[in-house]
Simulated assay, not measured.
Amino acid sequence: MNANTQCFAYIHGLNSDKNSRSCKEIHTLLGSVHDFYYDYTQNALLALAEIENKLSDVHKNNPNLKLIGSSLGGFFALYLARKYQLSCTVFNPVTFPSEQLAPFKGKNYNFYTNREWNLTDEILQSYTRLPLSTDMKLMPAIVLGLNDETVSPTVTIHFWKHHAKILLTTEEHSITNYQKYLSLLKK
């Protein structure tokens, strides 16, 4: 692969995985996309380490790696984009997981496998050890659905205002058509 060729990696959200409609649609639109699947049922530092292992393997051979994330995957994409100075586009990202995911505490199910698990206080609090920062070398692109019923777009707008390219849409939390954002993904 040419060092100038753009390479993509997708990080899914909570209760999702590589079988998600979003992941499949992004693969269809962009061709080869690395899937940074991780176990979100564990503490944040372990989940981050899992994603980071995959990222380091891909990034060393693909210096133009671009991260794409949705929801909790958007949080991880933003965190890692800052750390590795990577470009990223995220959709309805979680900004403060310990707070914004608190309503989901307790019994949860993977949307695709129906695997049951518990989101505990311990898992939620582990995210406080991974604060996001707006001090990034490359300005992220953030797509926010104003009708998001899961993650408040207001919190994200307030935190990232003047530090990200924010595109407001009428979408809900689940993006229905990534084709509309193809040019943004490839930018």
Results as ranks from 00 to 15, higher is better:
M1L: 11
N4R: 11
Q6E: 13
C7D: 04
A9T: 02
H12I: 00
N15W: 01
S16N: 14
K18L: 10
K18E: 11
S20R: 01
S22T: 00
K24Y: 04
I26Q: 03
I26M: 04
L29Y: 04
S32C: 02
V33I: 09
D35M: 06
F36Q: 10
Y37A: 10
A47Y: 02
I51H: 02
H59L: 15
N64D: 08
L65N: 08
S70H: 07
G73N: 09
G74W: 04
A81K: 02
A81Q: 09
Q85T: 08
F91H: 12
T95R: 02
P97G: 03
E99H: 11
Q100D: 08
K105A: 13
G106E: 04
Y109V: 11
N110W: 05
F111H: 14
Y112N: 14
T113N: 11
T113L: 12
R115M: 11
L119S: 04
L119K: 05
T120L: 10
I123N: 03
S126C: 10
L130I: 03
S133C: 01
D135T: 12
I142Q: 11
L144G: 11
L146P: 00
N147T: 01
D148G: 08
S152A: 15
I157N: 06
A164K: 09
L168W: 10
I175P: 07
I175W: 07
T176L: 14
Y178M: 10
Q179N: 06
K180C: 13
L185N: 07
